[in-house]
Design a protein around this nucleic acid. Structure first.
Lengths: 168, 168
DNA sequence: ATGGATTACATTGCGCGCAATCTAATTGTA
DNA sequence: TACAATTAGATTGCGCGCAATGTAATCCAT
């Protein structure tokens, strides 16, 4: 019977510094998400950098491809970004010729964002990107969907609990 | 039979601008990861901000709690961060009294990072954080583990394919 | 109509994240 | 030993991400 031995070994291991498993980096979902996010940003780079695009800028293009002519607020909602992030980002995209920004004549507070020809044209070239990325990640479509939906639920839960905490 | 009708409707929807499903923001795993990452950072804030800690700084503490007295390089490896990110971050943590930085006397190139009493002490208070977060996310332990392991595989796949692309 | 909220966006400041470059120490090799 | 290559960190520059604040336009209740 070496159970007591292995027990004392694992105790020793904890005493040596590795600590409770829920405080170990490798066991943290938040860190897995954090690392995956960086890995995705890096994985997109070969597709985006040659165009002079960043990943967040690509997200804005995705949004505008779905629906052109949106306000800064409308763009920010699904991306969960405010004007503090979007205003300079959109200005850079305008300077690079992807989009146009102009004040709404009906409501001078509003800035409407529309695609340029260059912005629309990149949509075709970008069509291959998602599949290439999923291939690089070694994911098939059902696995991808399941993972995405679970992450969405987690994100929703975190946001919801934050909202509750803020309102109480 | 309204199948043809619904078919033409969905065609119309695509024509109206929503586009191919794999180019829609909502269907992108990368975006789900991106959004989850931000949600986690926000969810950690109530625990970390009162201490004057940021989320990446907390990750460094997690590392040092597992093993004290690491070099900048050793700290950066599991976090996938280089000295360009870590050097200023560690200087801020040193200024805030969480850690100490000093040159290794055997190899003057190396900076060794060790916890202060304050840094060690926070470990106890931080013990509750992971469970609180998982509760906020609405996750049980098995779901969490499964999700974390799938994300790790994705991250590994992305990094691996990047490495291959770089070497070829 | 008018003064006080509200709204949309812009600005500022700070902390990553990362590429590119620099410096100094160490290692390997002729 | 001397010199090139490698290594560890530091530095610089730029683009987010986000809180806090500012400004101008609009809305709303009196």
């Amino acid at each position: 019977m070496n159970k007591p031995l292995s027990k004392s070994l694992s105790k020793k291991k904890i005493a040596a510094g590795s600590g409770p498993p829920e405080q170990q980096l490798e066991n943290q979902l938040c860190f897995a998400v954090y690392a995956a996010g960086h890995a995705f940003t890096q994985a997109y780079k070969p597709f985006l950098e040659p165009q002079g695009l960043t990943y967040p800028q690509y997200l804005v293009l995705l949004q505008l491809w779905e629906r052109d002519d949106q306000t800064v607020k409308q763009l920010g909602e699904p991306l969960f970004l405010d004007s503090g992030t979007l205003t300079p980002l959109l200005k850079r995209m305008e300077a690079a010729g992807w989009i146009m920004r102009r004040r709404d004549s009906d409501d001078e507070r509003v800035v409407r964002v529309t695609l340029t020809d260059k912005g629309r044209a990149f949509r075709e070239a970008a069509r291959e990107i998602p599949a290439a990325l999923m291939c690089a990640a070694g994911l098939d479509v059902p696995t991808l969907s399941a993972l995405r939906n679970k992450l969405k639920r987690v994100t929703g839960g975190l946001r919801e609990s934050r909202k509750i905490a803020r309102d109480s």
